[in-house]
């Protein structure tokens, strides 16, 4: 097969089904116009007007900043606490049931609670995001730190790795596959909580605006918001994967060669 043909085939694989689906949606909306489900064309047309104007600074950016702030807070606290707990067998045993309980609480129920305590401002939303996103990071870090390979740990001891050096050069890298898995779960929880916190109580943000459109029956605008949230989710997951590839390249390769 020639290069050009391979490229064509690759493009067809990646784009074929999405194009087909959008075309199908479009054809359906022409054939059976529906008030609730506008044509993709119409959504694309309002998308720019709605989101790429003043709302970019007033709604989209604040949402993303809150999301990032809450996520980073959860990540830092989760890794720090998780490492401390994971390194001590007793602390781990003592905290495990309590942590299992906290993890099992559906994070969105924290929204009304934290609203009650912290009010309606940005700090509340950041707190909501952090308090929901921390659990997968915390529990995965504990598990990763606990499971550091014994031989590797002995090796580090023999060669004098202690204290901070042991943490930086042995414990955290060894736990990083688990920590990254936790961070990945935390990312999707953080997005969910950002949206819900904004839907619940806010005067700005993507979630707030989308609900506003829905209440005012601005259907194409509402759909453009759903598409935007989808894009945010998709792009963040792409960014995360790029980060993961950098941090864990050794892990993937190692697994491949041992498989």
């Amino acid at each position: 097969m020639s290069r050009a043909a391979r490229l064509m085939l690759g493009a067809l694989r990646v784009l074929g089904l999405p194009v087909l689906l959008v075309a199908g949606w479009w054809a359906w909306s022409v054939w059976r116009p529906s008030f609730y489900v506008p044509s993709p064309q119409r959504i694309a047309a309002v998308f720019g007007d709605v989101w790429l104007t003043a709302r970019l600074g007033d709604d989209v950016l604040p949402s993303l900043v809150r999301l990032l702030a809450g996520y980073v807070l959860a990540a830092l606290l989760g890794v720090a606490l998780g490492t401390a707990i994971g390194l001590s067998g007793r602390l781990r045993a003592a905290t495990e049931p309590a942590l299992e309980f906290f993890r099992a609480i559906p994070p969105p129920v924290l929204v009304p609670l934290i609203m009650l305590v912290a009010g309606l401002d940005t700090a509340m939303k950041v707190l909501v995001i952090a308090s929901g996103a921390i659990w997968p990071v915390l529990l995965n870090t504990i598990e990763g730190v606990r499971a550091v390979d014994e031989v590797l740990s002995d090796t580090a001891r023999v060669y004098g790795l202690r204290g901070p050096a042991r943490l930086r050069r042995l414990v955290l890298p060894a736990a990083s596959p688990q920590i990254m898995a936790g961070l990945r779960q935390a990312l999707s929880i953080a997005i969910i909580l950002m949206v819900i916190a904004e839907m619940f109580a806010s005067t700005s943000g993507i979630g707030h605006t989308v609900v506003l459109f829905q209440r005012q029956f601005q259907i194409p605008e509402m759909w453009s918001g759903i598409v935007l949230l989808g894009l945010v989710g998709f792009l963040l997951s792409l960014a995360f994967r790029a980060l993961e590839r950098r941090v864990l390249h050794w892990h993937w390769h190692q697994r491949e060669t041992h498989a």
Binding site: D149, V151, V158, Q254
Partner: peptide, 21 residues
């Protein structure tokens, strides 16, 4: 009374004693 300086150990499980990262 702990790994002394000036001592090196080579383990059987080479795959687990090298830092893969």
């Amino acid at each position: 009374d702990g790994p002394p300086p000036g001592m090196a150990v080579v383990f059987q499980e080479y795959g687990r004693s090298l830092f893969p990262w």
